[in-house]
Design a binder for these strands. Structure first.
Length: 500
RNA sequence: GGGGGCGUAGCUCAGCCUGGUAGAGCAACUGACUUUUAAUCAGUAGGUCUUGGGUUCGAAUCCCAACGCCCUCACCA
């Protein structure tokens, strides 16, 4: 039998339903999200109601049939809505003939509404005993297997709509995602931060070292870049006198895809005038720890084979200390750094000092950063947007937060000296394919008007969600991760548009 | 881009090593059943084995290539 035969069976039922005079794609129906409310209501009325008796009050539920057990003149269904599941029963004796006939034509996956009293079965299962049945939408495609759900990862990502209703754990992750972001927003709003939106399409990109996506605006006939970072726009707002701002929005980077990288990802960036990167450290650890506590119930959470503890304070270690610890070299002793890199097979001959240091750091230190840990005081040349350490100008007042070997946050004491900023924009390091140092004259002009000293912070939201939901892949926390379009079927491309 | 793995019924998976023409469970269809819980019981039907080549008397199985997905390395400072 082919899929079309299975679907034909459902189409036949659709026709029979119409013959009953029923619209198989129903209308407004009260009762959404009632599964949990029904349980609460039953507890409140009479949790010890004897088997066989029913409440005098009726309840309404609307949702999807996930299990269907027809035992003759009685049908039991496991009914899911956004709040959870509840058993619904239809009895031939208690239903109008039309509703009973409709009940016999239901399939797994159909969306129904039911109205009726509550009662317990002899196994103690709370059940809504349908007195009326409303078909809200006929499902024409059989849902995934009821024990295993949908496990094929490709299908799960391509048909997330199926994944979400077939695998309750998946929906739970995205509910947590929403709650965590909501927590961040309120935490910042409570501390006087203003949420703003800055351009996602930019004539000039900057604020990070990454390859951009390009696009074109027809009316102006100009190329635009999808932003790789909102940083330079948010800092312009500091110049404008908005002293505390944040933005939660997408960045786009035209790079590889992995379990930790999606080409579009959600970044939360914030800037606090008159602060510094120490403030950003305490903000970072408190944001994440309070989110863990509020949404997941604890600051200690499992992640893969380990347990992470987000309770502040997180360890703070300097870049130089960690290089000494794991690569056993002095960061400022370049012959030693180059020798250490060479010994590990890391290319170094043609690269700038700071690039070699960074490559050595990634090879030797990063694999150990289970954390949570703040890595602070980076080599200055790697940080063209960061203020130098006044006590040691070789260092920049920057930190990155690492958890489970993932960079989850990046923060600076912001550079607000326009002359230094302009010089930094002109400095290019050998061996860096991409650089943050891209001249932005208007940004320099903004600094010339005077930007308050400030702390700035970027948090990779998707990665934080991964950590707090024990998700191994970034694709498990992004509803529709980027996939290559399926070959079959017509995909409309730019070329088609031109030919049309 | 390199390396490894996977692709069989709508879904979840066997079969491949050792070549002989396709199997199970769930879903579907028919029937029985008024307290089921992954309902049960009896019966029925369902497959271009991702695609294209090759080897062979014979390929889901062995070989090559393409496509897709996953993992990993590189890239992503």
């Amino acid at each position: 039998m082919t899929q079309s035969k299975v679907q034909q069976d459902r189409l036949d039922k659709l026709a029979k339903i119409r013959e009953l005079g029923v619209d198989p794609y129903g209308q407004k129906f009260e009762g959404q999200g009632a599964a949990v409310a029904v349980r609460a209501k039953f507890e409140a009325i009479d949790p010890k109601l004897p088997v066989g008796e029913k409440t005098t009050d009726s309840v309404r539920v609307a949702g999807r049939i996930m299990l269907y057990r027809d035992i003759g003149k009685l049908i039991f269904m496991t009914h899911h809505d956004a709040s959870g599941k509840i058993q619904v029963a239809l009895s031939k004796r208690e239903l109008a003939e039309k509703d009973w006939n409709l009940g016999r034509l239901l399939d797994l996956g159909d969306l129904i509404g039911v109205d009726g009293p509550m009662g317990l079965t002899k196994t103690g299962e709370l059940t809504v005993w349908g007195r009326s049945l409303t078909l809200l939408a006929k499902s024409l495609v059989p849902p995934p297997e009821k024990w295993h759900g949908l496990t094929d990862v490709e299908l799960r990502y391509r048909q997330r709509y199926v994944d979400l209703f077939a695998n309750p754990d998946v929906a739970a992750v995205f509910k947590k995602r929403s709650a965590i972001i909501d927590h961040f927003r309120r935490y910042l709003a409570d501390r006087g931060f203003l949420e703003v939106e800055t351009p996602m399409m930019q004539a000039q990109y900057g604020g990070a070292a990454a390859k951009p996506f390009t696009t074109h605006h027809n009316a102006l006939d100009i190329d635009l870049f999808m932003r790789i970072s909102p940083e330079l726009y948010l800092k312009r707002l500091l110049v404008g006198g908005l002293e505390r701002v944040f933005e939660i929005n997408r960045n786009f980077r035209n790079e590889g895809i992995s379990t930790r990288h999606n080409p579009e990802f959600t970044m939360m960036e914030l800037y606090q005038a008159y602060g510094d990167y120490e403030d950003m450290m305490s903000l970072t650890e408190n944001l994440v720890a309070t989110a863990a506590e509020a949404v997941c119930g604890s600051t200690k959470l499992p992640f893969g084979n380990t347990e992470l503890d987000f309770a502040p304070p997180w360890r703070r270690a300097t870049y130089a200390e960690l290089l000494r610890e794991y690569a056993e070299v002095d960061m400022f002793d370049m012959p030693a750094v180059r020798a250490a890199a060479k010994a590990r097979g890391i290319e170094e001959a043609k690269l700038a000092d700071e690039v070699v240091i960074n490559n050595l750091f990634e090879a030797t230190v990063e694999p150990h950063l289970v954390g949570p840990i703040f890595v602070k005081d980076y080599p200055a040349a790697l940080c063209p947007l960061t203020r130098r350490d006044p006590k040691d100008p070789r260092l920049a007042l920057r930190f990155e937060a690492y958890v489970a070997r993932m960079e989850i946050a990046n923060a600076y004491t912001e550079l607000n000296d326009p002359a230094v900023q302009e010089a930094n924009f002109r400095q290019q390091l050998k061996g860096q394919e991409e650089t943050m140092a891209v001249m932005d004259e208007d940004f320099v002009n903004a600094l010339q008007h005077g930007m308050p000293p400030a702390g700035g912070l970027g948090i990779g939201i998707d990665r934080v969600i991964m950590l707090l939901t024990n998700s191994a892949s970034i694709r498990d926390v992004i509803l529709f991760p980027l996939m290559r379009p399926e070959a079959k079927g017509e995909v409309r491309t730019e070329k088609d548009e031109a030919n049309a």
